[in-house]
Computed example of a mutant assay.
Amino acid sequence: MSLDTSLSPATLPGAGRTALVTGITGQDGLYLAELLLAKGYEVHGVVRGQNNPRRELVEELVPDVQLHTGDLTDMSSLLRALSASNPDEVYNLGAISFVAYSWENAALTSDVTGKGVLTMLEALRLHAGSDLDKVRFYQASSSEMFGKVQEVPQRETTLLWPRSPYGVSKVFGHYMTINYRESYGMHASSGILFNHESPRRGEEFVTRKVTKAVAKIHLGLQDELVLGNLDAQRDWGYAGDYVEAMWRMLQQDEADDYVIATGVSHSIRDLVTIAFDHVGISGWEQFVRQDPRFLRPAEVDTLVGDASKAKRVLGWEPQVDFDSLVRMMVDADLEALKAGWK
């Protein structure tokens, strides 16, 4: 659904409404803030730490967002952000989201990505009091919860079997969101988002690692790309499409959980092939080296989602296909690298 920009500010879908977004410094937070502002919302964001290096990026890309210092492990800071913003909608996107790091620091990942959801839900319950049903809550759940997949494709009813501390933490937050919905009547929905990428994706993630390395190799700035499992399969979509689904969930009369995915899986080998082809390199094997250090202790081999419920109930479908997404990311990295020469 595209926004009709001919509408006056008073008739925009979000006119007079306020949203609070945790994790606003991430790719999803930035795209969501842009979407909400375009719909007429007053948008507030929670930023962890006074000297967060990504704060300036938020101020540059979405200067109309009002920022508050807060931390998902600190309920008092969340209560202050809720009091200052008095939101109609809360989008909890904050997390330690790099799966590989979760094995290195499982405790911190559990505190932020898992217990942080509980802290946010409880802060919202305390803030809203008897008006709890007037505030709508979105939880960023993850396809990593499926882990050792029990059926293909994965849907809302698929048994969860996480294979990383990150996945386990997301399962905790997912079920806690359901529990608050059932216990307190909270309008709390979870989006079980499969992998979604963009030029704003952090460079530690494999998609951006590949596209930036390919851009550098093409420009003669790098000699090789070092990867782990080239055969891992993922269902990759575009982050800009997926934040639209988040918003649509909170516009429903009843809260619920939804798989958000393209329904098509690709291997990392496919990702590498498309990226190198886009810059005119066909024999990419000479530039790619596999290193066991980049293999996961417990691998998630195949993820592919069934988003038919989201299509039926939300009217949502992905707009950007995988090939276009990869080319978009390579082009953005090439443009950024060339701009750095000027």
Rank of each mutant, 00 (worst) to 15 (best):
T69R: 07
L3H: 09
E34K: 15
I268L: 15
V320Y: 04
D74K: 03
V65A: 11
E335R: 14
Y238M: 04
R296N: 05
D223N: 14
Q251I: 07
R293G: 12
S77L: 04
S77P: 13
S102R: 05
H127V: 01
P199F: 10
V168M: 13
T18S: 06
Q286C: 00
R125F: 01
L82P: 08
D64I: 01
H196L: 00
S308M: 07
K212A: 01
A128C: 11
F98S: 00
A213L: 04
S130F: 10
A84S: 14
Y242V: 12
V46E: 00
G94W: 00
N179C: 02
E151S: 14
S308K: 12
P199V: 08
L78F: 09
T211E: 00
L30K: 02
F205I: 05
P292Y: 05
V135F: 03
L93V: 06
V152N: 01
V171M: 13
N105D: 15
G129P: 13
R155W: 00
D131Y: 09
L72H: 05
V149C: 02
D74S: 07
W103C: 03
R269M: 02
P53N: 07
Y138E: 00
L3Q: 02
L230H: 01
E317D: 09
E335F: 05
E122A: 01
G94Q: 00
V243K: 06
G283K: 14
W103V: 00
D133H: 15
L250C: 02
Y184P: 03
G280M: 11
S282A: 14
P53Y: 09
V214L: 02
A38W: 02
P13M: 09
S324K: 15
A239P: 13
G340K: 05
S282M: 08
L221C: 03
A261L: 03
S164H: 11
H68Q: 10
A107R: 15
W341T: 12
V168P: 01
S282Q: 15
M120Q: 10
A106C: 04
K212M: 07
S164C: 10
P63T: 11
A100Q: 13
A19E: 08
D131H: 14
R54P: 00
G167E: 05
L36W: 10
G26H: 05
Q154M: 15
H187D: 07
P199R: 10
G23W: 12
V149D: 00
V210H: 01
V43H: 08
V135H: 06
S324A: 14
H68Y: 10
Q66V: 15
V168I: 14
T262P: 13
Q150V: 05
D231I: 02
Q66N: 05
S183C: 06
V320P: 08
E224S: 15
D256M: 10
V288S: 07
T273D: 09
G191W: 03
G147K: 12
